[in-house]
Design a protein around this nucleic acid. Structure first.
Lengths: 151, 151
DNA sequence: GTGAATGCAAACTATTTGCAAAGGT
DNA sequence: ACCTTTGCAAATAGTTTGCATTCAC
């Protein structure tokens, strides 16, 4: 097999191949959903995924979007977050991260309020601060078992 | 007014007083919900709050639990998280935090996997590590606008 | 051709809303 | 007494399930 262009790794292709390997079929609907997620810059609601996916597969139904998202979620390709109104947002795993806002280069720290819902924070913060958010970590603070006894 | 015992600040009382001050009424149902939250060690689902609240107010309805939680949430007394199955969990604000696991006293750091859903992490981690989790912070990492241009 | 995947409609579940009755001030 | 708050039942919204049809292999 010769590859002339597009040597770059292709997420959609990789995932579809993986699906084949573990017994799932490569379908137009799955390709559509995966491609939408690949192109998205942030979190998408299922409805939005369906709307965008119809560009690639006009018959794409909302139910199938849900089923595909659940499948990809189980396989670890997409992360799920919860919006304030109770809906879910989905994004490919590399984007599914988040929390102090520190510049990797100059170590500037920007304070921001709110902490209850990560999902809703990321996009607004990017917009308001101009930061390009690349990753995030979760840090719990408290007392370890030993120190609890010494208190 | 004399206070002989229990000089300690009382959350339930504080909140109820605040409610009065801003025009809400002090009711048995609200007292029940607040007290349940005050006594809880972690996140509670509305149903569980109702069940525990009936101990203090037997007629407590689930609808009222929702309304009270929404009120307390707006006033900043409780935080809301989202469980994996789409339900919500509630806890008083001091508990509503989360993410590295660092001992306040010895600075030990415990690594743990997973980041998609904070809510489901806190309780299992407390159970598995024996840590008493008291607080958490969100830290976003990326590039600030200036550094983006220098790259 | 065979069985998995899809789409529709219906089911389900968590949450909210309408309204008459109860409760707080 | 007035007007908020409550609880029930019904409505709503997001998500899942049942089933006949379509599609990938």
């Amino acid at each position: 097999m010769k590859i002339f262009f597009n040597m770059k790794v292709n997420m959609t292709g990789d995932i579809l191949q993986h699906l084949s390997e573990i017994g799932y079929r490569q379908t137009r609907t799955r390709r559509a959903v995966i491609r939408v997620l690949e192109e998205a810059q942030g979190w998408l609601r299922p409805e939005e995924i369906q709307a965008r996916g119809k560009h690639y597969c006009p018959s794409l139904g909302l139910v199938t979007v849900y089923r595909t998202l659940n499948l990809l979620s189980k396989l670890g390709y997409v992360g799920r977050v919860h919006f304030e109104d109770g809906c879910h947002g989905y994004a490919r795993t590399e984007l599914a991260h988040g929390h102090h806002l520190v510049c990797r280069s100059c170590h500037q720290v920007v304070e921001f309020p709110g902490w209850e819902d990560l999902s809703m924070l990321i996009e607004p913060i990017e917009r308001e601060t101009g930061f390009l958010i690349e990753d995030h970590v979760l840090g719990l603070m408290g007392l370890c078992p030993v120190c609890q006894e010494e208190e």
